[in-house]
C-alpha cells in the first residue's frame, strides 16, 4: 500500500468534460513512489483521457494533480501552492531540481521538463524520419539546450557543448543496449519492426530522465515473447532507475504479472483500486469486464483465468 504511504502523484476530483460528454468524473487516485501502477478498464472508460490530463495534453475541467519529486507530499505545502498562483515550487529553482508541481496548471512540455513525467502513445509516435540514435538524443533536448547556451555557445562550436552531446550519446547508447537495438542505431526509426518501435518509444521516454513514466498500452501488438521481454524491461526501469510507472494496458497477463497497484475505470468512474489480487476478485470489476454473473460468465472466467 505504498500509494497511500508515499505517493508520487496524487489525483483528486479529476473531471474532464468534452462538451456534453463527461469522459472522466471526479476521479481520485494515487501513484506510489517506485510502484508500477496499472490503469485498466473497458474501451472508452477514460484511461487515455486521464493520461492526457496528467501529461498536460488536456486541461482538465476541474481537479487537482499534485506531483512531488522532492520527498513525500506534505499537505501543508500543497495547500500553500494551491492557494498561490504558482504552477510549482522547486527546491533550487533549477530545471530538473526536486519540487512540488501542480500538473493541472502546467503546459505539456513543462510537465516533462520540470515535473519529469514522460509518456508514450497508444499509436506509436516516433520521429520516423530520424535515426534511432537521433530519437534518443532529441529526447534529451532540455539538458542539451542548457549545454548549448540556447544555441549561442553551441553555434561557435564550444567544447562544453561537444562534451554534453557526447554524454547524451552515452545515455542513448545505454538505452540502446537495454532494448537491444545498438546495431540499428543509425537506421531510420521508421524502418524498425513494430515491436522494436514500441521499445524504442519507451527508451526515448526514459531518455528524458523521468520520475514517472506513463505508458499507453505498451504491450499492444506484441507477441508473447516480446510481451515477456517488456515485463522485464519495465521491472528493470522501476528497480534500477527508481522510475515509477503508470500503465494503461489491456493485456491482463502483463497487468497482473508486474503491477503493484491496479486502478479500474469504467465510464470515467473509478470502480476498483487496490493490489492486483484484490482487484481481480472485485465483483464490480468482473461485472464491468464480463457482465453480470451467470453460468456463461463463470465459464468465461475459467477460460481467462479470472
Amino acid at each position: 500500500m505504498r500509494w497511500l504511504r508515499d505517493p508520487l502523484l496524487v489525483v483528486e476530483g479529476l473531471t474532464m468534460r468534452f462538451g456534453g460528454l463527461v469522459a472522466v468524473r471526479d476521479l481520485a487516485f494515487s501513484v506510489g513512489r517506485g510502484d508500477i501502477t496499472s490503469l485498466i478498464g473497458p474501451n472508452g472508460a477514460g484511461k487515455t483521457t486521464v493520461f492526457n490530463c496528467i501529461t498536460g495534453f488536456y486541461k482538465p475541467t476541474s481537479g487537482l494533480m499534485v506531483l512531488s519529486t522532492d520527498g513525500p507530499i506534505q499537505s501543508q505545502a500543497v495547500a500553500d501552492l494551491t492557494a498561490s498562483s504558482r504552477r510549482f515550487v522547486c527546491r533550487d529553482d533549477k530545471i530538473g531540481g526536486g519540487g512540488l508541481f501542480l500538473l493541472e496548471r502546467m503546459p505539456d512540455f513543462e510537465i516533462t521538463r520540470r515535473a519529469r513525467v514522460a509518456r508514450t502513445f497508444q499509436n506509436i509516435r516516433l520521429f520516423v524520419g530520424m535515426t534511432v540514435l537521433e530519437n534518443l538524443v532529441v529526447a534529451q533536448h532540455t539538458a542539451l539546450m542548457h549545454a548549448s547556451g540556447w544555441s549561442l555557445v553551441g553555434l561557435v562550436g564550444a567544447q562544453s557543448y561537444k562534451q554534453a552531446e557526447a554524454s547524451a550519446v552515452d545515455v542513448a547508447r545505454y538505452w540502446l543496449d537495454r532494448i537491444g537495438l545498438t546495431h540499428r542505431a543509425d537506421d531510420a526509426a521508421g524502418a524498425l519492426p513494430y515491436g522494436d518501435q514500441r521499445r524504442l518509444e519507451i527508451a526515448r521516454a526514459m531518455c528524458t530522465d523521468p520520475v514517472l513514466l506513463c505508458l499507453d498500452e505498451p504491450a499492444a501488438g506484441l507477441n508473447p515473447r516480446e510481451s515477456l521481454a517488456l515485463n522485464e524491461l519495465l521491472r528493470a526501469i522501476r528497480d534500477e532507475h527508481g522510475t515509477s510507472i503508470l500503465l494503461i494496458e489491456h493485456d491482463m497477463s502483463v497487468v497482473m504479472e508486474i503491477s503493484d497497484h491496479v486502478i479500474v475505470l469504467e465510464y470515467g468512474i473509478k470502480i476498483s483500486d487496490g493490489t492486483p489480487d484484490s482487484v481481480k476478485n472485485d465483483p464490480r470489476v468482473i461485472a464491468a469486464y464480463l457482465g453480470v454473473e451467470d453460468e456463461e460468465v463463470a465459464e468465461a472466467e475459467a477460460e481467462v483465468g479470472l
Binding site: 495534453f57 512540455f109 553555434l155 552531446e165
Partner: peptide
C-alpha cells in the same frame, strides 16, 4: 551547425511529430 544543435534537431522533430515533441519537453 544548427542541425547538430538541440534546436535544429527539435525543428526536424517538429516536422516529424509535433505531439511527440511536446511529450519530450
Amino acid at each position: 551547425r544548427m542541425r547538430r544543435l538541440p534546436v535544429g534537431r527539435a525543428w526536424e522533430a517538429l516536422r516529424e511529430d509535433e505531439i511527440a515533441c511536446r511529450a519530450l519537453g
